[in-house]
Write a protein that binds this DNA or RNA. Structure first.
Ligand SMILES: [Mn+2]
Ligand SMILES: [Mn+2]
Ligand SMILES: [Mn+2]
Ligand SMILES: [Mn+2]
Lengths: 216, 216
DNA sequence: ATATAGAGTTAGGTACACCTAATAAACGGA
DNA sequence: TCCGTTTATTAGGTGTACCTAACTCTATAT
């Protein structure tokens, strides 16, 4: 019942993602994430507010119920696309983001269903994020960032919140991918790196990137 | 080396398809095929001519070398998409056209390669049309329209040039799909229907649709 | 207190791809 | 030959989504 353009979908998707961390979603963060100029985003956010898809206050942009509903549909198509690309077409997990970011706007509800069934109803994307079901319901788990573990704590990697292909490829070579068990050997003081142990090997890992890895 | 928009791709694709039959590609035929107003097409064709993608003469619109090259790339992505949809995602042949028509603009060269390999280098789309290789080379076969066969002539269906889902579904129920052997029992006079025999059953088939079925 | 940096918006403009209404040209009968 | 239909174009206009330049705040830093 909505005539949303690919661009509107893209904005809502970005806002949804930026909402995941604690920081408020400012127009400048949005502009940076979408690689657009600040005025372009300012203007578009105004339109989204008119369409009642977001609320724009001093504290930043946030999705309305309806905006959230649409965002989750886009995310669903994005994550199903990623799974199609990795599981069936043989892409690596670091190659799928941009591809999926275009596919997600070209996929009909029928294709969504077909992908889901052909893949055997996957629960997550290749980076470990839950795929919303057709009603937009997302499985939530209580997770901790790897960066918050103490020395000798163990955890199983659930998700890796990172879009940069280079970094994803690097993490894959270390074996830091979902489902893998990781143990923190040592935490350097003053915000220094963590020494982690994964499948027998020991690596130093920056706090920044460790905070993007969620474990359970 | 070209910054083509999805719309330009779509026009070139349509022109290519309309060139397949003998009639000249007029702007009105194009408008009808693209479901756009005549002036819109007139204007866009002018732009395509400026970009040296088509020549526009009294005899109609025709693709330049470069226009042809791009058109074949789009067709390649379209047909590979269709194969992905039918062979892997379980779509029927009558459901894939519109879906593929959107996907073809969202597929990178890498994805193209991945699809091709995952499908085992298919030679044709589900409707029997050849998939251009990565250099734009298309396998050409000498084919006859089913409508030109005489009584008691036999042939193997190679392709079905039809986009209407209803008609495709109907033809599938009759078993009139690529690879199938068909025999003409009788040809009604005055442009009337053909009586064809396919896998043991006999059907009457209009000239119009029979001319879209190519056999070898 | 004043200067400066940062964040956000307004103003003004462009490219793209569509539309309807009006006009022109060509064609095929009667 | 004239007339009406088909075919194509011109003219004028819209909505979407982007841009740069200029302006307005506000929150520091000196
Ligand atoms: Mn996206
Ligand atoms: Mn993902
Ligand atoms: Mn198309
Ligand atoms: Mn086809």
């Amino acid at each position: 019942m909505k005539a949303d353009t690919p661009r509107i979908e893209e904005y809502l998707e970005s806002i949804y993602k930026l909402q995941q961390d604690e920081h408020p979603v400012t127009t400048s963060r949005l502009a940076e994430h979408l690689k657009l100029s600040a005025p372009s985003v300012s203007e578009m956010v105004k339109k989204l507010a008119q369409k009642k898809l977001v609320n724009h206050t001093e504290k930043g942009v946030c999705l309305t119920q309806e905006g959230n509903r649409i965002a989750k549909k886009v995310i669903r198509r994005h994550r199903l696309s990623e799974r199609l690309l990795t599981d069936i077409l043989g892409f690596r997990w670091d190659e799928v983001h941009d591809e999926a970011c275009r596919l997600e706007h070209a996929i009909s509800p029928e294709m969504e269903k077909h992908i889901e069934e052909s893949l055997g109803n996957p629960k997550t994307c290749p980076h470990g994020f839950p795929i919303p079901d057709e009603n937009g319901v997302i499985a939530k788990e209580k997770l901790r960032p790897l960066s918050e573990l103490k020395a000798s704590d163990k955890g199983i990697i659930v998700s890796v919140f990172e879009e940069d292909p280079k970094m994803l490829q690097y993490l894959a070579t270390l074996g830091l991918i979902p489902e893998v068990c990781v143990r923190v050997e040592e935490v350097a003081p003053f915000g220094g790196p963590l020494i982690v142990c994964v499948s027998g090997s020991r690596y130093a890992l920056g706090r920044e990137v460790a905070s993007k890895i969620k474990v359970k």
